[in-house]
Amino acid sequence: KRPMNAFMVWSQIERRKIMEQSPDMHNAEISKRLGKRWKLLKDSDKIPFIREAERLRLKHMADYPDYK
């Protein structure tokens, strides 16, 4: 399994928030909203998620050196 990218790290947190506020919302609608919100997010606000994704990528490389 591939490591999460910055969007996936961010969306995992945000998806939980949306599901708590709107438990009846369909997953497809949540995904659309997350995509739009990520695009509107300032680059500076994305930095912590980019760093976490990089950390996960490096850990994945160390844990699975033969992964292609």
Rank of each mutant, 00 (worst) to 15 (best):
G35Y: 15
K36D: 05
W38Q: 00
L56D: 05
K36T: 13
P3G: 09
K1A: 09
E20D: 07
I30L: 11
I13A: 12
P23T: 03
L41A: 01
R15P: 02
P65Q: 14
R15S: 06
Q12I: 11
D24Q: 11
Y67A: 14
D66R: 13
S44H: 08
N27V: 12
I18C: 07
E29Q: 05
D66T: 08
A62S: 13
P3H: 12
L40F: 06
I18T: 02
Q21T: 11
L40W: 04
W38D: 02
Q21V: 09
K68S: 09
E54A: 06
K17F: 05
K39Q: 08
K42R: 08
Y67M: 12
M19F: 07
P23F: 00
A62C: 10
K17Q: 11
P23K: 04
Q12H: 11
E20T: 06
R55K: 11
L56I: 10
A53T: 01
D24A: 08
K42L: 05
H60D: 13
H60W: 10
L58M: 12
I18H: 03
D24N: 10
D63S: 10
R55T: 09
K36C: 04
A53S: 05
M19Y: 04
P23E: 03
N5T: 15
K39V: 06
M25L: 13
D63G: 10
I47E: 15
L56G: 06
I30P: 00
R37W: 02
K59S: 13
A6W: 00
R33Q: 15
I13F: 08
G35T: 15
K36Q: 15
R16D: 08
R37K: 14
A53L: 01
I47G: 08
K68L: 06
K59A: 12
M4A: 08
A62F: 08
I47A: 14
L56E: 08
K59N: 10
R57F: 14
A28S: 13
N27C: 09
D66S: 12
P48L: 04
R55E: 06
R15F: 04
N5C: 09
L40H: 10
D43M: 12
H60R: 09
W38E: 01
L34D: 00
P23I: 03
M19E: 13
L41Y: 01
D63E: 14
A62D: 14
K42V: 05
I50F: 13
D45T: 03
G35I: 15
I18E: 03
Y67H: 06
R55H: 07
L58K: 12
M61Y: 06
Q12M: 13
K39S: 13
K46N: 00
E20C: 04
E52G: 05
I50L: 09
I47M: 12
L56Y: 06
P48D: 04
M61S: 13
N5Q: 03
M19Q: 11
Q12E: 14
D24F: 10
R2G: 10
K32C: 09
N5Y: 04
K1Y: 11
P48R: 05
I50W: 02
E20R: 05
H60K: 14
H60Y: 08
W38K: 02
K32N: 10
L58Y: 07
E20A: 07
W38A: 00
L40E: 15
K1V: 04
I50P: 01
R55L: 06
I50M: 10
R2A: 11
S11R: 03
K68M: 08
R33N: 15
S22L: 04
L34V: 01
M25N: 02
M4F: 13
I30G: 01
P3I: 05
F7S: 14
R16E: 10
W10A: 00
A28R: 10
E52S: 02
V9W: 02
M8Q: 15
D63P: 10
M4I: 14
I13M: 08
L56W: 03
L41G: 00
I47Q: 13
F49G: 02
W10Q: 00
Y64T: 14
D66W: 06
W10P: 02
L41F: 02
P3L: 08
Y67P: 12
Q21H: 07
Y67K: 15
M61F: 07
E54D: 07
K32D: 13
Y67T: 10
H60A: 12
K46M: 01
Y64L: 13
D43T: 10
I47N: 06
L41I: 05
S11F: 08
R33W: 11
M8G: 14
K42C: 07
R57S: 06
K39R: 09
K39L: 07
W38P: 02
K59L: 14
A28C: 06
S44N: 08
M8W: 08
P23R: 02
I47P: 01
S22W: 14
K36V: 14
I47V: 11
F49W: 09
M25V: 10
R37A: 15
D66G: 11
I50A: 09
R57T: 09
D66C: 05
L41V: 03
H60E: 14
G35L: 15
K59H: 11
A53F: 01
S22R: 08
I18F: 06
R33A: 15
A28M: 06
K17E: 00
M61N: 11
M61Q: 15
M61I: 08
K32Q: 14
P3N: 11
K17T: 05
Q12L: 09
M25W: 02
K39W: 02
M8K: 08
L56C: 05
I30Y: 01
K46S: 00
K1S: 13
L58E: 15
R55Q: 09
A62V: 10
P3D: 14
N27D: 15
R16C: 08
I13S: 09
R15A: 05
S31V: 13
A6E: 02
A6H: 00
K59F: 06
F49R: 00
S31C: 13
Q21L: 06
V9S: 01
Q21G: 07
I18D: 00
A53N: 07
R57Q: 08
D43I: 08
I13V: 09
R15T: 06
Q12K: 07
K59M: 12
E20Y: 01
M25Q: 03
M4K: 02
K36M: 10
L58R: 13
M8A: 14
H26L: 11
M61C: 12
Y67S: 14
V9I: 14
M25F: 03
R2P: 03
K36W: 12
D24C: 06
H26N: 15
L41E: 01
H26R: 13
A62L: 09
A53R: 00
H60M: 11
P48H: 06
R2I: 13
E54S: 05
N5E: 06
K42D: 07
D45Y: 05
M61P: 08
D24V: 04
E29G: 03
M61V: 12
N5D: 13
P23V: 02
A28D: 10
A28T: 08
D45P: 00
W38H: 03
W10C: 00
K46T: 02
R2L: 07
M61A: 12
